[in-house]
Write a protein that binds this DNA or RNA. Structure first.
Lengths: 352, 352
DNA sequence: CTGAAAGCGCTAACAT
DNA sequence: ATGTTAGCGCTTTCAG
């Protein structure tokens, strides 16, 4: 188990200078004869250029960072698979971190990536713009996926939200604020939620609740818009991200408002909680309460009845985000909105 | 957005040599006065030591590699969360790869990690011992999780299986073979499967099938042992890892052997497939067929009826594996077998 | 087209 | 206790 061959070994064995080896291996100019010789020797020595040397020289670690809230959430699993697929085809390593939805852990992980000189980052953000400005200022290329940093409500006018998406959502940045200019890849929450709400209305539902989680500002906003008129605030409730709190929120909702007839769950963990809570309270789906859940996950079909869902392309989302972050040098990336699809299965019924 | 401060900047600003700064920051000896001064300057300059320089100098990348077959499989999500949790508390970055269960991709990813000089690796292996010997020979510290590399059936006596676990399973390494001496963290498949099979037998089931996936050699062996006597080979079927093939296997099984009365699914993806296939064929669970699934995943409870499962601690498994791989320098790690638990819910009924 | 040489930021001898 | 120095393996001017 002896030391790996270095570029120097190859150079010596091939009777050329190290610079030439470097050139040949990175596709630079070299005489056919030299090139062939170097390649042969390199192969023979089983030479693999060390990323360490290259990274230091270039003052940056190749590869891309990936920050998600929770890998046991199937949707983030899908998203991560997309990122990994793209990264692999580009030969780039991926450094993964799970934030638990906690801005502090997120900040720590950003710090660690900075320390590693990882300069490209895909994130499902948990912190607000304030959490993210350090990364941006440090020159990282970041792309948000699935959602945007919360609008931070503090006075500091230096901090705001992502520009692109505000516009795409038909909002305009508050005056006085300097939006983060970070591209994002997200689902068309507005259309997705709207379609779901319309569908429920069409079934006769009037008291429709929204069961949300952290980082779902855009979905909540879409819900309010779709429901229109003054929204019954008691029908909009939130969990904090954990399965427990999602369950508590769902259970609380059902108990405090037995008059509701339908609920839109903002994500699969929330949907899961809703099913569980409903069962515990002897509410039958869809007889007593109709349910539509954001995220199509394999198990949605296993439920009884199978869950009607707003499907969003998690894998594509990750793949596209990775493409953006990798191409960032070339062209200035623009945000992407991916389509959603209402998949009608059995968890919604007519109001009665 | 100017260049990050380097150790040299700190040294100059503090009026000391770079070595002193290095010492202070890595807890070496220094006079209280100097230490204080360096720390102050470092903080003031917002100095973060670059992992690049350190890595090159130490000829190794810190951090640990993690290779799993598929992140959309909730169990691997749980396992990964465990690894990440441990790594984070140790301040180590994690490089993630998803192999898709394909030995070739696995080999590629190992190559990439080697190139990155990542020298600690946790893997849910897909390839056989032959795939893994390069990593071992290169001096990587590897720990297997969840399962072991397949016993490779080829002549080459240099290749074999993991030593520890063979013994733990009560087997002894074939003569002529040189087992990989790699520690592993796995569930007690033998006990888990045995308990499940006994439970099913207690309910009167005699024709019990096993629906397996790749890498489940230990579970299959345990199944054979638990069933005892000559096993009806038609009742032992395999998918290749994808959801589609799992479904095909399950469906084929149900159709070709309508006389079976119970099935043990070797993992959650297979369990999912079994539920789907049964429904498609109008087999009622548990009336027509009883089902017990390996892995406890949140959605097992959502099924109708809720699934009886053999729970294994995915998160712990990841955490323990990370501990082993991190401590590897200190003491020679020994393999770990984690307990399983049969959680009885509603998917098994008496034979009729 | 090719080689020599200068570092990238850091740590570990070694010398003081 | 602290400073000086020599690289780690690689890419990239800069000459030839």
């Amino acid at each position: 188990m002896d030391r790996r061959a270095t570029i120097k070994d190859v150079a010596e064995a091939a009777g050329v200078g190290v610079a030439t080896v470097s050139r040949v291996l990175s596709g630079g100019s070299a005489s056919p004869h030299t090139r062939e010789r170097v390649l042969a020797v390199a192969a023979q020595l089983d030479y693999r250029p060390s990323a360490l040397g290259r990274n230091l020289r270039q003052r940056r670690t190749g590869g891309i960072g990936l920050l998600v809230p929770d890998l046991t959430d199937t949707f983030y699993g899908q998203l991560s698979e997309g990122v990994l697929a793209c990264a692999r085809s580009a030969g780039e390593p991926v450094m993964l971190g799970s934030t638990g939805g906690d801005p502090e852990q997120e900040a720590d992980l950003i710090g660690m990536l900075l320390e590693q000189s990882v300069d490209r980052l895909i994130a499902v953000p948990s912190g607000d713009a304030e959490t993210w400005s350090p990364a941006i200022r440090a020159g990282m290329t970041v792309v948000f996926a699935d959602r945007l940093p919360a609008l931070s409500l503090q006075e500091d006018p230096g901090v705001a939200a992502v520009k692109d998406l505000l516009l795409l959502d038909g909002l305009s940045p508050a005056p006085q604020t300097r939006p983060l200019d970070v591209p994002a890849v997200v689902a068309d929450d507005r259309a997705g939620i709207r379609t779901a709400v319309r569908y429920l209305r069409g079934l006769g539902h009037r008291r429709i609740a929204f069961l949300g989680g952290p980082g779902q500002d855009r979905r909540v906003a879409a819900f309010r818009e779709a429901v229109g008129a003054p929204v019954d605030e008691e029908l909009v409730v939130f969990g904090t991200g954990s399965r427990d709190s999602a369950y508590a929120a769902a259970s609380g909702l059902f108990q405090s408002r037995p008059d509701l007839s339908a609920v839109v769950a903002g994500g699969n963990v929330l949907g899961e909680a809703a099913v569980l809570a409903a069962r515990e309270l002897d509410l039958r789906v869809p007889r007593d309460v109709s349910l539509v859940m954001y995220d199509d996950v394999p198990w949605a079909e296993l439920c009884a009845p199978p869950l009607t869902v707003i499907a969003q392309p998690g894998r594509d989302m990750g793949y596209r985000a990775a493409e953006l972050v990798l191409r960032a040098g070339t062209r200035k990336p623009r945000s992407v909105i991916l389509p959603t699809e209402l998949i009608i299965r059995g968890s919604c019924g007519p109001h009665r």
